[in-house]
Nucleic acid binder design. Structure first.
Length: 318
DNA sequence: CGACTTTGACCTGCGC
DNA sequence: GCGCAGGTCAAAGTCG
């Protein structure tokens, strides 16, 4: 399905994207609205490039300063101190604070957040909390008690653990200018659903990592403003290595079985590459933001960023 | 035949 | 309480 994808990516956070793409002004026609391109995206003239290609082709130098500049962020030294992660050198086997993932520890940021952007994420997270809890429990039931009860609970939703809040999964979104919806990122995905999106003619597709017990999901949707723009939202962290990485070159990483280290390193590498290759059209986000986007409360998402991309932040660590 | 996609149904949370 | 929207399930279909 996917293949050499024409991409022009920018790093965004899901919540920001939600705000960005859900706030479709009513009373204005699409033609009157600022295109996403107005937000900093430029058209792509580069040849098709898959994420995997970039992943393997880049030097994967994770440069926080670069991204920080892109986002108009301060350097994160103070943040690093509270992250609770250890980032020993540029060895890929970094350790870091678990991102949540079913009882994982909440990050300092996700737990203290109350901003609008966070609220959006929280709301979204809350929404599927029950479902996820249920399913996690179902899996357990099936593993422990056999199929009958598991089968039972498939359709029956027993209210459980009321009041207990499920940790919200870290999410990370990309805006990608691409012809295809499902972009190659080195992992294997199974589509498990598709829904029409309100205020958008384009459906949202739901994918799950096909690796057993890997909880990572991703959503893919097109911008209603610019159909060539694909919004990909990753949720959770991989519990395994990237198949493409395993198959392909080994120079990139031998990271912990987490998406954070490998995948985002790749993404960041790509971002880095893009900034160095103007033909990619990768431009500074913050610098081109219209006020609504500039109002994004970055520090908290920034903490999330730190969480999911520890290797990225290590670049700022002496 | 296994892996994957499609698609309608179902569940949940939220706003009115 | 009701309707809506988002998210997921799972049977059926498709493909290599």
């Amino acid at each position: 399905m996917s293949g050499g994808d024409q991409e022009n990516r920018q790093f965004l956070f899901h919540d920001e994207l939600s705000a960005l793409f859900s706030q479709r002004p009513t009373g204005r026609g699409p033609n009157d609205e600022p295109s996403l391109l107005d937000f900093g995206l430029q058209s792509v003239s580069s040849p098709p490039t898959s994420l995997t290609d970039l992943l393997h082709g880049s030097t994967t130098t994770t440069d926080y300063g670069l991204l920080a500049r892109s986002f108009g962020l301060p350097m994160p030294l103070d943040v690093l101190g509270s992250g609770g992660m250890t980032v020993p050198g540029d060895n890929a086997s970094n350790s870091f604070t678990p991102l949540s993932g079913g009882g994982g520890a909440a990050t300092p940021y996700s737990s203290t957040s109350s901003s609008s952007t966070e609220a959006a994420g929280e709301e979204d997270g809350e929404r599927c909390k029950k479902n996820q809890e249920k399913r996690e429990e179902e899996v357990e039931n099936q593993l422990v008690t056999g199929d009958e009860e598991g089968e039972m609970s498939k359709k029956m939703n027993k209210p459980k653990k009321k009041g207990e809040k499920r940790q919200k999964e870290p999410r990370f979104a990309f805006v990608t200018k691409s012809e295809v919806d499902h972009l190659e990122d080195g992992y294997r995905w199974r589509k498990y659903g598709q829904k029409a999106v309100k205020n958008s003619p384009y459906p949202r597709s739901y994918y799950r990592c096909t690796t057993q017990k890997c909880p990572v999901k991703k959503r893919v949707e097109r911008s209603y403003q610019d159909p060539t723009i694909v919004i990909t939202t990753y949720e959770g962290k991989h519990t395994h290595q990237c198949p493409a990485t395993l198959r392909g070159s080994s120079h990139l990483l031998a990271p912990p079985p987490a998406m954070s280290a490998s995948f985002f390193q790749a993404e960041l590498a790509m971002a880095h590459q893009m900034t160095q290759q103007p033909q990619f059209g990768y431009t500074s986000m913050a610098g081109n933001l219209t006020p609504p986007l500039q109002q994004l409360q970055f520090p908290q998402d920034y903490g999330l960023l730190q969480d999911i991309m520890p290797s990225f932040f290590q670049g700022s660590q002496p």
